[in-house]
Design a protein around this nucleic acid. Structure first.
Lengths: 345, 345
DNA sequence: AAACGCATTTCAAACGTTTGAAATTCTAAC
DNA sequence: GTTAGAATTTCAAACGTTTGAAATGCGTTT
């Protein structure tokens, strides 16, 4: 149940020097033996490695980092940790980073530019080796990231396209295609009056998704109706206002709805139910997200656009590590697209 | 819009040595000036600090950590990051840690002991200065944490009470009181047949909550009925089985329900609706969690026991840092209770 | 028996910081 | 103008690791 290794350990950590003393050889030999240098005799290597294992030697990361002039820390800046998309993306980033000997520091901006700037400063002081950033909804100026560039610290932008910043690395969801497929599915199910509920106009994917919607309509010979489009943000009141606009005229009301985000969709449906909209039960909706709570809703969306946040995150960190390893030249700007998947419920 | 500070920076980081050379004084003076040593002349202090600011000097953390024999990293082990309780507790931990110059590394165990053991080993190799742990649902043996104890690395257990491990620091929610108040509210609303749906028996708070339930009944002269108690875990099928047991006899069915976790409550309600239980709309429920999705449910719980996860997390890290600062002796085992709050919807 | 070549090990400096002890400069009193 | 004493600065070692250069040991060749 316990014990057997009760060796009574000293509580000072084991160092190379200590191992060297025990084995009566030099520190450099020990270091090289553990790092498997070819010039070291196989016999001594074994001795050293055995001893290291026996004494539970753990290399001191601070010393190594100091020597290598690295921190092995990646900074992650994102708008909101309570949003499932970001939580899941963090999961992907974390996994991959840890597997490659890196740690991450997460900063939430609450979609606020000032907070984003503060985060940048803070992460600079933490001496991150690299940065992964989902910009705030109103980031147009990128000068708060200049200092990273000056220091040669690579930045990968993810999820949110920094369209004002041409020369940069980005990893984005292929949200155009996702929205195209969602719209297409609704058309296939016989809908002709399909509304699009978009997000903050400053966020790039709002437009990509809108274009997916438009293109699906066009490819299926459905005329675009400007009255079937409305925009909101992450604020409930604005969502309700948008829905009111879309469903103002009961006779002309849409029979289906594509929303840029599932959570916003929930607010929309809730509102329509609260005013007892006559066709509410017939309205079919699709949003981006694939939230696990969907299964508890009485009027759930008929499908979800799964954005694969873990994969987006993983692609971002993977690219960043390649930049850090100089596997990709820092000025050789990359753009990675991650596919969405339409999940029918 | 940009510029004005376009100083054209070198891309090698600024060090004390560099500052010293610029100022033509010794490195130690620079160091002491920046650290505000009383032996340093105020005049030179100002010079040094001005120069440091001008050149954007950032102290090298690795070097400091090496010198101080610290990593300034806290390991956090918890069952599941997709659970809102833990996400929110992480938020509290993260905030506090960062403010005090610490970083955190998070490990998910998926409530699996083997994974918890692996996490412990991994964090040992990361040389964490301290550990915050929410044990897995079947952790009874704590030997995988022995090495931390040997090395004098403090551990704070949180949320889940390690009842098999007497001598340890813990920060727990006052879940007894929370459940007492929830039950009491239902009684006040006229219910007499109140069911209790408990969680995995290995998790300590299952019993604390049960005791809260029992005591509320007793204090209100309601006889305890063993048929009104059932247990489940985080698995949907088991929850359904438990509900089937509780509602087997329609005439004797409970009119109210207290659940050890809101998410489980959602499954329960969903099931009752799916079988069209005759009294389903009259059943009043309360669970632990206060999930924001509640507002989208058609039959929402009438109240939630808000567990204040941020506060639990913050208390845990705060205690840990006190242990690290020797403000509290490591053998002077602490127990901190964080109150819940009944939120009526 | 000296000299060469090879395998293996050790030396020593470096990474950037901190800090007690030692050295230097300054002030003021005699 | 010497000197005690304080104020200020510098020295030097240390934290634990890595790594190219230098040194050592040893067998082989001549």
């Amino acid at each position: 149940m316990h014990g057997r290794l009760e060796k009574k350990m000293s509580n000072t950590p084991i160092t190379l020097k200590l191992l060297a003393e025990k084995l009566k050889i030099s520190v450099s030999t020990v270091s090289k033996a553990l790092n498997n240098y070819p010039t070291i005799n196989e016999h001594t290597k074994k001795h050293v490695q055995d001893m290291a294992r026996e004494l539970h030697y753990i290399p001191n990361k601070s010393a190594i980092n100091l020597k290598e002039r690295k921190s092995r820390i990646i900074g992650v800046i994102l708008p909101n940790l309570l949003d499932h998309f970001f939580t899941r993306s963090i999961y992907g980033i974390e996994q991959f980073a840890t597997q490659h000997g890196y740690q991450i520091i997460i900063r939430q901006t609450k979609d606020d530019l000032a907070e984003e700037m503060r985060s940048a400063t803070m992460l600079l002081k933490s001496q991150v080796d690299g940065l992964i950033v989902a910009i705030s909804k109103n980031t147009q100026d990128f000068s708060h990231f200049n200092e990273f560039e000056n220091l040669g610290i690579p930045i990968v932008y993810y999820t949110r396209n920094p369209s004002f910043n041409l020369n940069c690395h980005k990893v984005l969801g292929n949200t155009f295609k996702g929205c195209y497929e969602a719209t297409e599915l609704l058309i296939k199910r016989g809908h002709r009056k399909i509304a699009y509920l978009g997000g903050p106009k400053m966020i790039s994917f709002t437009h990509d998704r809108f274009n997916g919607y438009i293109n699906a309509l066009k490819d299926n010979d459905i005329a675009f109706d400007v009255n079937l489009v409305a925009y909101t943000d992450f604020d409930k009141e604005n969502t309700i206002a948008a829905i009111q606009k879309l469903f103002a005229d009961v006779n002309q009301a849409p029979t289906a709805l594509v929303a840029f985000k599932e959570l916003i969709l929930f607010d929309a449906i809730k509102y329509l139910r609260s005013i007892d909209h006559p066709q509410v039960k017939e309205i079919e909706c699709i949003g981006f997200g694939n939230n696990s709570f969907i299964s508890y809703l009485d009027l759930p969306p008929i499908a979800s656009v799964e954005e694969n946040p873990e994969s987006v995150g993983e692609n971002a960190i993977s690219l960043l590590l390649k930049l850090l390893d100089k596997e990709i030249e820092i000025k050789n700007y990359q753009k990675v697209m991650v596919d969405c998947k339409l999940v029918v419920h």
